[in-house]
């Protein structure tokens, strides 16, 4: 009973918020915009999926940050948690109901955006959209959404003020996204790894370096999207560039999916283990 009621209340409370509706709408609009902008550029809709997946990698964590950073920290700072835990809800039920609730909203945002993109592709692209490719895009993006939502809700559970939760969530986004991928020159994971190996006087195997590189949910998501383009890598140069060329574990798409699944499950579990002993009030 506890999980179901906490989940239901949280979803209803969030779904009636203009912020949630606005955020989902903006994300759907952005993805739709990518597809609309490329109507006259590419014949095949899967090429637009490729660009949309990069948008998702960069923007989506920022989109769901406002939906998640106050999931638990907000309840703690406002005292709402006393109401929920004053009822016979366990902390396990409360924590996971919050996570599943926010992840559901994030997945709903992805589903609406994908549905909108499919519709545009069906109506305006030269080639008909491949339903299976869109379905794969939806599935992988949903898993990425769950991984990021799980991470952000965990950060939220570890903080008791709004400001710390916000800093924590945006910090997590930066480290797991732009920093891990090396988006900003010098400030990247590679630089740190180089510094450490140099300090220790050791050399890192390329396979290990790539393995570390794919351990973030964001980089794992990009790696996993290779699954979408089975059989059509050669149609576009951009897509062929992401095709795996080695037998390294980091280049296996199943491993990338596994990494995202771990972030979606193990991180929230660790978050709960921390949350179960925090003091309320």
């Amino acid at each position: 009973m506890g999980f179901a009621t906490v989940f239901k209340d949280d979803v209803r409370n969030a779904a009636r918020s203009y912020v949630v509706v606005g955020v989902i709408g903006v994300f759907a609009a952005l993805v739709s915009l990518v597809f609309i902008a490329e109507i006259d550029v590419y014949d095949a809709p899967f090429r637009a999926i490729f660009d949309a997946s990069f948008l998702l990698f960069m923007i989506f964590p920022l989109v769901i940050a406002p939906l998640t950073y106050l999931a638990i920290a907000g309840d703690r700072s406002r005292g709402t948690i006393k109401f929920v835990l004053g009822l016979p809800n366990s902390r396990l039920e409360y924590f996971f109901a919050k996570y599943v609730s926010r992840a559901t909203i994030a997945v709903a945002a992805v589903a609406i955006a994908t549905g909108s993109a499919f519709l545009i592709a069906a109506l305006f692209y030269v080639e008909s959209p491949d339903f299976v490719r869109f379905l794969k895009f939806l599935g992988l993006s949903a898993l990425f959404a769950m991984a990021m939502a799980g991470t952000f809700v965990t950060v939220s559970a570890m903080t008791r003020t709004r400001s710390r939760a916000m800093i924590g969530v945006f910090g997590a986004y930066f480290v797991l996204g732009p920093f891990w991928l090396g988006f900003i020159p010098v400030i990247g994971l590679d630089t740190v790894v180089d510094a450490i190996t140099s300090a220790l006087g050791v050399e890192l195997a390329e396979s290990t370096r790539q393995l570390i590189g794919v351990l973030s949910p964001s980089t794992a998501y990009l790696e996993s999207t290779e699954l979408i383009y089975t059989g059509v890598f050669e149609r576009y140069r951009a897509i062929s560039s992401i095709r795996s060329e080695t037998d390294y574990l980091a280049d296996r798409t199943w491993f990338a999916v596994l990494v995202m699944a771990a972030w979606a499950t193990v991180v929230p579990l660790l978050g709960f283990l921390r949350f179960r002993s925090v003091e309320v009030g």
Binding site: G2, D9, F83, L87
Partner: peptide, 25 residues
């Protein structure tokens, strides 16, 4: 429990909050 210094879920109705408490118990 009626705690001190709290906020209820602001987008739920009073009836929904009470119905939820009844269901939880």
């Amino acid at each position: 429990l009626l705690p001190e210094g709290y906020e209820l879920y602001r987008n739920l109705t009073g009836r929904e909050l009470i119905a939820s408490a009844i269901e939880t118990k």
